Simulated assay, not measured.
Amino acid sequence: MRCSCFGASVAEKRKRKSGSGQFGHDLDENVLENIKAFSYNELRSATDNFHPSNKIGRGGFGTVYKGTLTSGKHVAVKTLAAQSKQGVREFLNEINTISNVRHPNLVELIGCCVQEADRVLVYEYVENKSLDHALLGPTSRTIKLDWEKRSAICLGTARGLTYLHEELVPHIVHRDIKASNLLLDREFNPKIGDFGLAKLFPDDITHISTRIAGTTGYLAPEYALGGQLTLKADVYSFGVLVLEIVCGRSSAKGDWGGAEKFLLEWAWQLHEEGRLLELADPEMGEFPEEEVLRYMKVAFFCTQAAANRRPKMSQVLDMLSRNIRLNEKQLTAPGFFNSSGSLSGPSGKKSFSETTTSQMSSVPDTITQVTPR
């Protein structure tokens, strides 16, 4: 039995797209030629009936299993929780957004299954799980991430985002760049995954006003406060991610300097005190101090409070990959939510209570809370 949204005839596809199918009316029929349709039985067999021993991860809307197809090919099978109405939207969005997108630093969507109440996505299998697992998880210290690997992860992620932001038409803003959405292959090359929150971003607009979605600690201030989404929101998240990669700690609030602060907040304080190198993870072993400092300063450029002061991802990639002198005089304090619940930046502090009703009308739609490990 084939996936219910993939009929044999164009007429059936059009009928479903017009609204008669359970999910097909929300699925762009152009994607039907780009990915494989799996039956639920195929995927159940591939994962040994979704056996717990094959579980490799869990997201906000379902569980991911390792599977082996009859051809012998390994895949990652992401099941959507049947009760998740919101997850259906993310599921369809991911298929529509990246079904025909291919890049070495993006996880490839191989196929899907929509069969009665079952909804499943099938991706390429990535051997070393997520960066969150390798860098921040309880078993992270069994995986040696030296500076060479960490630098390559930063560069590969920057290449993937440059492709999404500047080479694809229309452009794509990911909206949830974070360690758990960055997967590592056998050689620890990074692949950006989970496009459930992604949005297409045409050239002829300056921003999208949208409901807020993402993860605390990675959200750009203009987006977290007012729902004003641009490609620079991903740039901000990438800057936070770079700091995590360098220091080996979560961006969530932790005990930094004896106070509860976000990683970005603490990093900027160390920068102002001339102690930024103290942030570097000693687990890296020996590392080139000047290069590590440059990466952290690039992270500050990415997290500037004003979106228009942040570089494009192609510029970020250039700053990371070339040993060039950064104009640090252009740096101002990054924008972040401090421990008192205020927005801090070059213009001072702004309390949430001062934010207008219209700004906060975009009630948080999908926000993940991250707790330090």
Rank of each mutant, 00 (worst) to 15 (best):
N323L: 14
N49S: 05
P190V: 00
S358T: 07
A280L: 08
E222N: 03
L109D: 01
G274M: 02
L293N: 06
R2V: 14
V122R: 07
S362I: 11
H271T: 02
I177N: 03
G137I: 05
I324E: 07
F188N: 07
V77C: 06
E290I: 07
R175H: 01
A299H: 09
G57P: 09
W147I: 11
L145C: 00
P221C: 06
G214V: 04
E167L: 13
S99T: 06
R322P: 08
A11V: 12
M313T: 00
Q315W: 06
Q86F: 07
F336N: 04
E187F: 12
E290Q: 08
A306Y: 10
F262R: 13
S39L: 15
Y123F: 08
P282Y: 00
E187H: 15
S362Y: 12
S340K: 14
K191M: 02
I245D: 04
H165N: 03
I192V: 05
E116V: 12
T216Q: 11
R211F: 09
N327G: 04
V10A: 13
P372C: 13
C247M: 03
K149F: 00
Y236E: 14
H174F: 01
E354A: 07
E278C: 07
R16G: 15
R102Q: 10
A8W: 15
Y163L: 09
L183N: 00
F300A: 02
F301E: 08
E354R: 08
F287S: 05
S351N: 12
